[in-house]
Write a protein that binds this DNA or RNA. Structure first.
Lengths: 204, 204, 204, 204
DNA sequence: TATGAATGAGTCTTCATTCAT
DNA sequence: CATGAATGAAGACTCATTCAT
């Protein structure tokens, strides 16, 4: 029975994901989801309060993974050097890309097809959170190395965080081979480490 | 009469813009637009063929301006040095920001509230077009300066173009003072010129 | 100017006929007619009071011809023998068929696509009128030849008149060659003269 | 519950029939039907997929009966003599008339008020099917009695079948007493048996 | 005369959601 | 637990017609 119910849950979530991706949240139809999942519309409502919650539930796996990664990242004892260290950056980028590939569909759903749902806030929330973390990190670094230049425009930091999300969006929108992704990673790291070095005034 | 008609057109466009921004294209209601514009629903249809065309018409001012800017940019006789020249880059950035500020609402509409309309393609189209231009430009530069490194991942170029759009999106989503924007511009230019210099291998 | 106006009238009528035939009266659209005729919708209303009158006007050529034929037929000095005379019947049938072929489209319009318009009464009116004439004719014949049997069910006469209309409907619905029509005429006359002879009790 | 649901179904069908008869399919309004049936518009859509299917469902009782009668008629072991035998013909006619009286409203609906719906094809389909049967029957008879004349124009056969339908249409359009119908039946049989006898060349 | 413009009423259909069973 | 049934509100869009110009 438990198994049966889990099957139904999964079936509903799967079909909901397809329908949301296909039509976008607003234009998706609960009927279609139910019909494709082989259950009645009302059954969906016994599992999920409403359309929005269904959407949220569909996105949860990624949201959880993203939160976990964020926490891990935030608690890591990184130093300013890590931002300038290509190897360290590459590692971080690869981990991110691995996760992006894993949650490809959900990410596409959240970034491009969530209009009208509460998941549509994810983009802004995520950027804001990441930005806040960077600011806190910069403060910490300034304490540690008083002579580096951390006088960086808040909005530039924000834009940089948004870039990450933008890149994620581009990755999930295109079908890239592993080689392309690796090459991209190298280029990106080259570009951004050089950029940050310049920002920090370490690039005499 | 002419004035009257133009008034009505403008009124419809204004209210449509508001409604689209407020609810998103899909959830926007023609009834609401008509009611707020003080005309009957059918009157809207004497001016615009359907909801999608109304949306398109709302966005046209920006689309035209963006196209004009693109053409101007593409026909400009830029050189590789311009990409590395902070002054030149700042000028370009400022021009872009000026336009973004001018069409703030429409840009927000296109980037974040256009799901379900044909304007939703703008983002991808724009990124693709810009990427294509950059590729062409790189080829030209490689011919001119055979010793620079232009072996940059296509997808990195794409991601870079997407960054521009992402920044534009952030600008229209936040209420930034002129100082902040100026500061951001400086930082951005510092960061990216350093990045490109590194990419081109000019940064001995 | 007169010529111009007549051109417009004709153009409107032609396109109206097409649209009515295509969609049926109820589903036909004044807009479509106007657009195809190259005039504005309101122009149609300067020529015709409303959709129904436009329909009527489209059908007039046939209605007039049919009335003329009816009058001619009614005033003709026919005798009971004519109904039993194959040559006479064939002649009548051929004349009718000629007219039917001439007004083919309008007849199809009236018989099969006039629902919702006042032309939809034509069928019944025509049958009733023809039936009335036959009744009057039978009365006259009974006076002239008291010994023939004219005790025919009113409704049979009605059904017979309806048959004529039904045949007309079949002719305009099918694409028949002249040979087929001629063969049909012969068969029809053979069949019905035999039938009437039996009815009149003359066929000993 | 079952009873309740059947009541609702029936109520919807009844009111739909009335509305379709009253306004014709195209001009009939789902709102009016729903309102008269005492249900909401959307409830109709839980029972019937769309307006056309509702129309079809309204007509089904007659369509089924007509098909049953056709099958019965086609499988009967009739002979050429039956077409010339007044008693046999009268019997057939009476059975048909009984059915017509039973489904009077639906027949009127199909024959005269179905424009725009898929039931509008019934007339032609029926005529074609009956004609095909007659042709097959004539072939069979020619095999059995090589000396009868079955060289009858296809279109005449078609017109004859259309006559049946035309008569049916006249019956449902008029309020005829049983006597009138009986008298009509006699006349019709007299007329048509004489006609067919002549056609077959048996009436020396 | 010809029409652009305007409209209120209407179209069929779908929606997410609720609830009794 | 699962659902069939029901619904009011809303969807985009079209309609025939009028009227000032």
């Amino acid at each position: 029975m438990q198994i049966l119910k889990d099957n139904i849950r999964k079936s509903i979530l799967d079909e909901a994901k397809k329908e949301f991706l296909d039509k976008g949240f607003s234009d998706a139809s609960m009927r279609t989801i139910a019909s494709n999942a082989g259950v009645s519309v009302s059954t969906i409502y016994t599992y999920y309060k409403n359309k929005d919650e269904l959407m949220t539930e569909v996105c949860m796996p990624f949201v959880n993974a993203a939160n976990a990664m964020t926490i891990e990242h935030h608690t890591a004892d990184t130093d300013i050097d890590d931002m300038l260290n290509p190897d360290s950056q590459r590692e971080t980028a690869r981990a991110l890309i691995a996760m992006v590939k894993k949650y490809r569909d959900i990410i596409r759903l959240i970034l491009f097809r969530s209009e009208g749902s509460s998941m549509n806030n994810f983009r802004d929330n995520y950027t804001d959170r990441t930005t806040a973390h960077i600011l806190w990190f910069f403060g910490k670094m300034k304490m540690k190395y008083p002579d580096i230049n951390t006088d960086v425009s808040n909005f530039f930091l924000h834009a940089n965080c948004a870039w990450t999300l933008s890149i994620i969006g581009e990755i999930v929108s295109h079908d890239l081979s592993d080689e392309e992704l690796e090459k991209f990673t190298n280029d990106y790291v080259k570009f951004s480490t050089a950029g940050w070095a310049k920002m920090f005034g370490k690039n005499t």
